[in-house]
């Protein structure tokens, strides 16, 4: 066993040495200590909110949101599909327990009163911050994926501190979370195909040559809205939040199972 460990350690060291040699001596990631931008990043930064180039602008002062939902929009759509595939896979592992009622044992559910009271405040704050991330994703750091990931803290706390029975009494079931996820995914697809119906291209945001259709680029007080980026961020937020809520309701189902079941 010790020999195997030694061999593994040595082979990992050799691989890392080769990588470091390629990076430092051969320079596969560019020159050391880069000062200049790569050309692709420079182009994205140049076009993202440029009124002079009206066919290339995304009307979003935040670089990441502009690339995520405008320039590389289809990539993000497929990444969303990967995310929901993984969640569906997690559900399939425990699907026979998902419909079972939480068992009524003699012991008191949940953690102590102090933890519950603190968690109540934290859950609401988490939800508010997550929704704020989704709403302001086109002008400040934030966006659909980030808001969804922050939102996922709320169901974890709810299920682990208050238990699944309490969540179900609040009306939070896996069916409703799946419905939330599916309906917001449909809204997302609707935003994506709206330009196609209006005679433009799929995933079109601002006006392009050959198609004058354009989502609103500015809010009424000329705050940048990013066109479709705003709507896509918002719908992605609730879709991701619904998916993680399903996953963590399943966590509560596993927690309510007895040992050896």
């Amino acid at each position: 066993m010790r020999v195997t460990g030694l061999i593994a350690a040595i082979s990992i060291l050799i691989v890392l040495f080769a990588l470091a040699y390629g990076l430092v001596v051969l320079g596969i990631s560019g020159p050391p200590a880069p000062v200049k931008l790569r050309l692709l990043g420079e182009k994205y930064l140049y076009y993202m909110i440029n009124p002079a180039t009206k066919y290339f602008t995304a009307e979003s002062p935040e670089g990441v949101s502009a690339i995520l939902w405008d320039y590389r929009g289809l990539d993000t759509l497929y990444e969303t599909m990967v995310l929901f595939g993984a969640i569906i896979g997690a559900i399939l592992v425990y699907r026979e327990y998902l419909y079972s009622e939480p068992r009524k044992t003699g012991k008191i559910y949940g953690l102590s009163h102090i933890v519950r009271t603190v968690s109540k405040i934290i859950i609401w704050l988490t939800i508010i911050i997550a929704v704020a991330f989704g709403f302001t994703g086109q002008i400040t750091p934030g966006g659909g994926f980030i808001g969804g990931a922050a939102f996922a803290v709320a169901p974890v706390l709810l299920v682990l501190v208050y238990t699944l029975g309490y969540a179900r009494r609040l009306g939070l079931t896996h069916r409703r979370a799946l419905l939330l996820r599916a309906s917001f995914l449909l809204l997302l697809l609707l935003v994506i195909v709206t330009p196609l119906i209006a005679g433009g291209y799929i995933f079109q945001n601002q006006a392009k040559p050959g198609s004058a259709f354009s989502f609103p680029g500015r809010f009424i007080d000329s705050t940048p809205l990013g066109g479709s980026i705003f709507f896509l961020n918002l719908f992605e937020l609730f879709a991701v939040a619904g998916a993680f809520t399903v996953a963590f309701i399943l966590l509560g189902v596993i927690a309510s199972l007895k040992e050896g079941e």
Partner: peptide, 26 residues
């Protein structure tokens, strides 16, 4: 990279810890 920080703190410090602690308890 402020976007990544916002997503990363919630996921890595909060959810991974809770998830793995739950798994250890089980």
């Amino acid at each position: 990279v402020p976007d990544v920080v916002l997503a990363y703190i919630a996921v890595a410090v909060g959810i991974y810890t809770a998830l793995l602690m739950f798994a250890v308890k089980k």
